[in-house]
Design a protein around this nucleic acid. Sequence first.
RNA 1: GGUCGGUUGGCCGAGUGGCUAGGCAGCGGUCUGCAAAACCGCGUACGGCGGUUCGAAUCCGCCACCGACCUCCA
Length: 491
Amino acid sequence: MDKLVIYNTLTRKKELFKPIHPGAVGMYVCGPTVYGEAHLGHARPAITFDMLFRYLKHIGYKVRYVRNITDVGHLVDDADEGEDKIERRAKVEQLEPMEVVQIYTNSYRGNMARLNNLPPSIEPTASGHIIEQVEAVKKILEAGYGYESNGSVYFDVERFSKDHHYGKLSGRKVEDLYSNTRELDGQSEKRSSMDFALWKKATPEHIMRWPSPWSDGYPGWHMECTAMSTKYLGERFDIHGGGMDLLFPHHEAEIAQSVACTGHESVNYWMHNNLITINGQKMGKSLGNFITLNELFGGKHDLLEKAYSPMTIRFFILQAHYRSPLDFSNEALQAAEKGMERLMKAIEVLGNLPVSAESTVDVAALKQKCYEAMNDDLNSPILIAHLFDGVKMINSINDGKEKISAEDLTALQQLYHEFAFDILGLQSEEQAAAGGGEETMTHVVDLLLNLRIEAKKNKDWATADKIRNELSALGFEIKDTKDGFSWELKK
RNA sequence: GGUCGGUUGGCCGAGUGGCUAGGCAGCGGUCUGCAAAACCGCGUACGGCGGUUCGAAUCCGCCACCGACCUCCA
């Protein structure tokens, strides 16, 4: 519990993790904007921080994990300033904006569940916290770091940077920002191009709007995280996570807002996962090169050679370190699929290994290495490598080449249960697909395969092959084993 | 242009100043009526050029290439 080291973007160093309140951790992660289906890129922070959530709990912390749902406030692009993403989508589909929000929130949650991500402790929505956001804007105005302009309120970066360090998280210099910020439409309201909106006045056709002291409008792009993290985790909390693409300006703005509101920073450890690329380029909505999770699960996309199960996706993501870029390819996904299958088979074998009086294998050392990997900034690829070393160990024991004591076997079983299932959040495909009245079919298939064994005993190869071939044609994969058979249904 | 990060064997992807990462594919073997699967074994890579060092893929410098952010984005 006292050895976890995590990489802090703020200091660009690995630091020993020490919570503010002993034994308890507050963690906030930027969630999705629910105006479209979740794609592969969304899976990465969700899985990364799910692993962190699971590990923190495993090593004994009480954790409050907050992940927001952004359902208001983001602009589509500078061409249609004033119209937010939710609303634009709503017009296209002729739905109420909140109906769109509901559809994609449900879809996101469903996808996350299939990836075996635990639900966060709290999933607050931006639209449900307008009052908190308005209050935060008021505080920033009182502190003198904001100004009203034509019904909108902006954060005064120049004023702020006189008292505080704006750009400390992303390593940017205010002088550079002056020259590098692109000219946007409607910037005349702002004193400086680098100022960002805290509250935006709604145009007449803008449906999503709320009253405020300044105008009927909606909160600025970075306010929700500041308001909601403070509400549920306090003015100071331990971990704030999100994708690297949010580092600037989103998280930089959050820091500025927090400091402006409370006089101090709120986050001790900033963690950022790297992005998933496709052909070396970031996968993103704006680039249009994304593959949705539903497309992956169903194999319905031009770039997909086949369907990939949620667990394959999870394993694929965990096989890379969260701070490294990860490139999508069919080959890599298929490698992950096979690898995970091998791991899961070994865990099955682990369930009934022969026991000996003495062990010739070192389970304690393996366990030690597994903890070291996780404690070193959640190094899941190294953890998985150790688990594969253990696979070799398990198979050798099964082959009689190594021996294990009853005590060690229990420890080894516990180790796999904890690291593979509890911490990495993996599941066997059977577990994942569990449910759904397939019991009868199982019995029928077993019956046929038992008949096949009879036929084989009688050297009636014609019947034996017929049963296997016809089952294969129906999508069953039949394998002969030493003492019988095994089968699975390939979709 | 500015800031940050990366370049590892056929592919994915770790790590380290000298000692086997791991997975997938491939090759060889075991098993098997055939097949498939499974299991075992094998492969010696770190962008280029200099420098530091007894020794560098690992540290330093320069160069090349790639990417992210600088505008909503996981």
